[in-house]
């Protein structure tokens, strides 16, 4: 199996039937359109190293509200095109005045692309099981072209990540990944995802990431123990009223 790095304009095949995504046909021959990795199974396609997310119908994405209109939420979906969510696409009936109460500017939401028209008007939907506003967890941003690598073949990578870290994961096609779990688990997962991003073009990645996570877990538990001891020591050194001050500060910021 060939996994060559190709560049725009590289000759790929004599047979125009081989042309897959990321390629074009000229004079009956197939050339690459992109700078990326060539895949030669069935047809030849090129998976780019970089690139923006271009919405297409039925994709799952994670969006952030950037604007409210009387009947639409407008979402930033990490793409050159903004997404529109009409109130009628929210699972429940919503009065226009109550829209900010449900999702306001800055909120992140799991969404599905309902339709994209030729002028790139993106219509979103939440009328699907599991789609919801996000109020816990973290969002990680990655290169959209590498999303398939995080999911893995038949979901192998993502299920491994779930198993090893006990986190909930939702991978949006637009390169935003929502994770939720214990803080230490999320830290580990974030590092694992960084690792996938850096080594996405290499082979044997799922195994290496798995090993990395296990080693990390062992190291973390040791560290945690050590830290716990330290903390106990520290606590004795800090006078009571410092805590009260800190608490008061925290409350203020909460409000």
């Amino acid at each position: 199996m060939e996994r060559d790095i190709v560049f725009p304009g590289q000759f790929l095949s004599e047979n125009k039937a081989d042309s897959g995504p990321g390629t074009y046909v000229k004079d009956g021959k197939v050339y690459s359109l992109l700078y990326g990795i060539k895949n030669a199974r069935n047809r030849i396609s090129v998976v780019p190293f970089a690139g923006k997310y271009i919405p297409s119908s039925k994709d799952f994405v994670i969006g952030t509200v950037i604007e409210l209109t009387p009947s639409n939420w407008i979402f930033d979906i990490c793409s050159p095109y903004d997404g529109l969510l009409h109130v009628s696409e929210y699972p429940k009936r919503v009065e226009s005045g109550k829209m900010p109460g449900i999702m306001d500017v800055g909120d992140s939401v799991l969404l599905r692309v309902k339709d994209v028209n030729p002028s790139m008007k993106v219509e979103l939907s939440m009328r699907e099981r599991g789609l919801k506003p996000l109020n816990v967890g973290r969002i990680i941003k990655v290169v959209p072209a590498k999303v398939p690598r995080i999911i893995g073949h038949g979901g192998s990578m993502v299920s491994m990540l779930k198993k090893e870290t006990d986190c909930e994961i939702f991978v949006g096609q637009n390169g935003r990944i929502w994770i939720n779990g214990k803080d230490s688990d999320m830290d580990r997962l974030t590092e694992a995802i960084d690792m996938i991003m850096q080594q996405s073009h290499t082979t044997g990645l799922t195994d290496r990431v798995c090993r990395f996570l296990r080693n990390k877990e062992d190291a973390d538990t040791d560290e945690d123990l050590a830290e716990a001891e330290e903390v106990e020591e520290d606590e004795s050194g800090i006078p009571e009223d410092t805590y009260r001050k800190v608490d008061a500060l925290l409350e203020e910021t909460d409000e």
Partner: peptide, 11 residues
Amino acid sequence: DIEVMVECDIG
């Protein structure tokens, strides 16, 4: 893992 790479589009 090669499968994974290949499956990117279709997968």
